[in-house]
Amino acid sequence: MTKTGMIDFRGVNKWFGALNVLKDITLSVEPREVVVVCGPSGSGKSTLIRCINGLETIKDGDLIVDGQRLGDPATNMTQLRTEIGFVFQSFNLYPHKTALENVTLAPIHVRKIPRTEAEHAGRELLAKVGLADKVNAYPAQLSGGQQQRVAIARCLGMRPKIMLFDEPTSALDPEMISEVLDVMVAVAEEGMTMMVVTHEMGFARKVARRVVFMDAGAIVESGTPDEFFSHPRTDRSRAFLSKILRH
């Protein structure tokens, strides 16, 4: 048997009704590797990473995450999810909780870390993402960029092995994108295993080991950021890049 990665897709298929949204996906992500997933809208990139923590279920093929096979009765999905941070496009912070409470909620109730310890760690994490002064602010009082940084801190609070990002900067005003990307770069440089759905090429070039290009549910091309952005090999990826690079 081949060496298993941190995230291992082996011939994974998924349908939404008659629509084959993931087509025979085979992809392995190694520990500490950063993989960027891009592709046109509706190509299945979000579905791909949502399968990893079970927000979507797969029809056939194997998906092995941190050594555990998804859908296997022996796999405790709730337990596995504590090892996987997920950052949403729309942040999804808890509106009735302060920034600090957002960060400490799961550590206290799921990880069973003592409150004082969790709060101490939470404050440090918020300081790390540049929000030491927003500890007691509610999400509605924060800008989009600040909310997304809280959301990243919320994931880090669980001390996950894997972080997944689903278009983390797509809902942000342009001037707030870099503050979020900077935090993501810092997380990547600390050796986090990451899969990031994004079209931010600067980020991909800086930290990604690989760029995976998807179209119509299939992985069309995969390579280093330099290869992919400078010498795309397929017509579809060239057409896609010409569109996102034009402006």
């Binding site: 709730t78 997920f86 909620l105």
Partner: peptide
């Protein structure tokens, strides 16, 4: 919003925790 459920599911909360806390 659906996102609230997803965020709490993704953080490893059980059904009861999700209901009670979020």
């Amino acid at each position: 919003p659906r996102g609230q459920v997803e965020a709490s599911v993704a953080s490893g909360m059980t059904y009861v925790q999700r209901m009670r806390l979020v």
